[in-house]
């Protein structure tokens, strides 16, 4: 049982990291950034590229090398998110939501198959792998690497929480999410804040991508699709637009899947997870932490 919980929490922390980007972007401009999962994939491939170029230098350093790569990949995916917003989403601000969503679906296709053109359809294998000793905690096997990855995820999330709640940028973000027009009148540079939001959200997805690459080892151009879907679900379970909610939602979904697999078999897991989502939303439409918001008229 503890093993199940641990598996769930570990997977859930990946979901949470990706869900954060979804929820931040949604919270601020009410956009479901469908291409978000693909930024996760992009992060994994940037990390792969850097590690391949750095070659032998990195293999000896292991975890430290991965940390450096992590930062580079975050910068690159953050910039990619910035460009995505500038090119694809900003011209459509104020357009009907559905049009923006279609653009996002288009961006998702373009990133996935653009990467396929660059890297080919075959999966790639990370040159540096995290594998190591495991310790037994209350009957669950936990590797040092898993623990460190969770630690990184928690640190990133804590940093984000501080950024949003404790800094001027964060206050501006919250203001825009409340009322973009009023925020503009109050002297907030709305474009810049939205751009920053995209940068941060995308960088977090990129970080998750590198961590997944380093831990699991296999990356391919479609790897972002499923996790994007799951992160989206996690964000909704947590109450979309709410940062703590995204973290909780991610962990909840991870646990749900882990326990669902054990109870009713792997082939029914997604049915279980999605049915739970539907029932949950019917009973509590705002998610775990979502506030009761009326749709803006």
């Amino acid at each position: 049982m503890t093993q199940l919980l641990w598996n769930g929490l570990f997977v859930g922390s990946f979901y949470a990291l990706v869900a954060l980007g979804y929820t931040m972007v949604y919270g601020i401009i009410r956009l479901l950034n469908f291409a978000h999962g693909d930024l996760y994939m992009l992060g994994a491939f940037v990390g792969f590229g850097v590690l391949s170029v750095a070659g032998g230098l990195a293999t000896g350093l292991g975890f430290v090398a991965l940390l450096i790569v992590l930062i580079i990949a975050m910068l690159v995916t953050g910039t990619a998110g910035l460009l995505l917003e500038r090119i694809a989403y900003r011209p459509l601000r104020g357009a009907p939501r559905l049009s923006v969503l279609i653009t996002a679906v288009g961006a998702s296709f373009a990133i996935e198959y653009g990467m396929r053109l660059v890297a080919g359809p075959n999966p790639e294998v990370y040159p540096v792998r995290l594998a190591g000793d495991s310790v037994n905690v209350l009957g669950a096997r936990i590797t040092i690497q898993q623990a460190s990855l969770i630690l990184i995820a928690v640190l990133l999330m804590a940093g984000l929480q501080w950024l949003v709640m404790g800094t001027g940028t964060g206050r501006a973000m919250r203001a825009i999410s409340q009322d973009p027009t009023a925020a503009l009148y109050m002297g907030i540079n709305v474009d810049a804040v939205i751009a920053r939001t995209f940068f941060i959200g995308s960088a977090l997805a990129g970080a998750a991508g590198v961590m997944a690459g380093g831990y699991y080892g296999k990356i391919d151009f479609l790897m972002g699709f499923i996790i994007g879907l799951k992160a989206f679900t996690a964000a909704v379970i947590g109450g979309i637009g709410n940062i703590k909610g995204a973290m909780l939602g991610g962990l909840a979904l991870g646990l749900l899947e882990s326990i669902g697999t054990a109870w009713i078999g792997g082939q029914w897991r997604d049915v279980f997870a999605f049915s739970f989502l539907i029932i949950f939303l019917t009973l509590r439409p705002t998610g775990i932490l979502g506030e009761r918001v009326t749709e803006r008229v």
């Binding site: 989206f232 539907i278 439409p285």
Partner: peptide
Amino acid sequence: PTLRLRSDYLAIVTLGFGEIIRIT
């Protein structure tokens, strides 16, 4: 049950429903 939901939630619920049918 879902048409009372906010429109964005409807998107994810219908997506989930599509997956449920296919996997089933």
